[in-house]
Design a protein around this nucleic acid. Structure first.
Lengths: 200, 200
DNA sequence: GGACACATGTAATACGTTACATGATTTT
DNA sequence: AAAATCATGTAACGTATTACATGTGTCC
């Protein structure tokens, strides 16, 4: 049964994709809300996983609506109509199913770190480029940590949950910075980089 | 000019995608090597970013070959032929260009953490499910850290670079575990979760 | 010589991105 | 009323995934 099959009605189907689940989650958090609001929230997200592009969100929301995981309330808006979405019971069930997946492998999986990925291949750079790259990355990571610390200091979080999430981001960023500062110190030694294998 | 346009010959084109760059990087590290070897390395990677599926790698390698970023040496193998690839000069240039990208935004960007993503929406779970989920995640993260620590302890890394990369993965995993243990302690309080907004 | 892993692909499918198009509302 | 911004979409495109098909070498 294809994902956009409108005959799907229950929560007994294939599990949600991450994007579907996140859309359901966002709607759940701000219902009633429009597809545009979901889009805006994705666009505002600091991570670059999804762009929240129109071509992804509008069709996806329509699909979730057709699958009756979302209910829509028409709201006239000139010649066009806006739709205010809410989660249906099936939508809540589906979202919960995604959250407490029996298989946690994907949830637990080690986050992909673009710095670590690139580090695998840094042996392909000449020594001075390597050092320059390391300096630039350290600088970028420091700025990132600084920004997250400032956000933390201001403590303008609507809920405790938001604060915990921000804390997690900050802790991760700090750990990465500390680690990479150590690595950078050694980026000059060619001896260690001969192989250049691995792909993350 | 489309990515598989065989007329592309230099390194002056659009920047490489991450997958393209990683393929070049792997070939660079083990050249000469076959598409299958690249595939195997992706499949062996602990992260789940790419599956290294045949349908992705074989066409991609052919594209890189057509673009003359890879050179191929035919090797008869029964009725089929195997191709041993190497990086061309243009391939090295392209790989280096990807590594020391002028725009580090993507490199620096905060790693996507599936745990953090799910935490955004955990308010949609009833309280006891929430606690159960938290316990399961902590258990999973502990096992992950344990495995990485063991790998670290054995210290069976071909190069220093491999060791640093493993250290980075371990540090990240430990930071995530420490953070989430703290979070889990509070997953019982409903007060904090009322909003349930955010999308990572 | 059958089973099994190694190795090389192709076809169908799904979906996220970019780029474009257009309507509605607010600002100046 | 022109410009900018908010809002709702569509079309073309590329490409990663799954599932399948098939050849090749090795091990018992």
């Amino acid at each position: 049964m294809s994902p956009q099959d409108p005959s799907r009605s229950g929560g007994t189907d294939r599990p949600l994709t991450d994007l579907e689940a996140c859309v359901l989650g966002v709607v759940h958090g701000r219902q009633p809300c429009t597809a545009y609001a979901v889009r805006a929230e994705f666009a505002a997200s600091p991570t670059r996983r999804w762009s929240g592009s129109a071509g992804a969100i509008y069709p996806l929301v329509r699909r979730l609506h057709a699958a009756e995981l979302l209910s829509g309330e028409q709201r006239p808006r000139g010649s066009r109509t806006s739709i205010l979405y809410r989660l249906t019971e099936a939508g809540v069930v589906a979202l919960r199913g995604w959250l407490r997946a029996d298989d946690l492998v994907e949830t637990i999986s080690l986050p992909v770190d673009p710095v670590r990925t690139r580090l695998h291949f840094v042996g392909a750079l000449p020594e001075d480029d390597r050092r320059r790259w390391g300096d630039a990355v350290v600088e970028g990571l420091r700025a990132q940590v600084e920004a997250l610390r400032e956000e933390w200091r201001l403590d303008a979080f609507p809920t405790d949950l938001d604060r915990w999430i921000a804390r997690g981001a900050l802790d991760l960023a700090e750990a990465r910075l500390t680690w990479f500062e150590e690595v950078r110190r050694r980026l000059g030694d060619s001896s260690a980089l001969a192989g250049g294998r691995g792909s993350d």
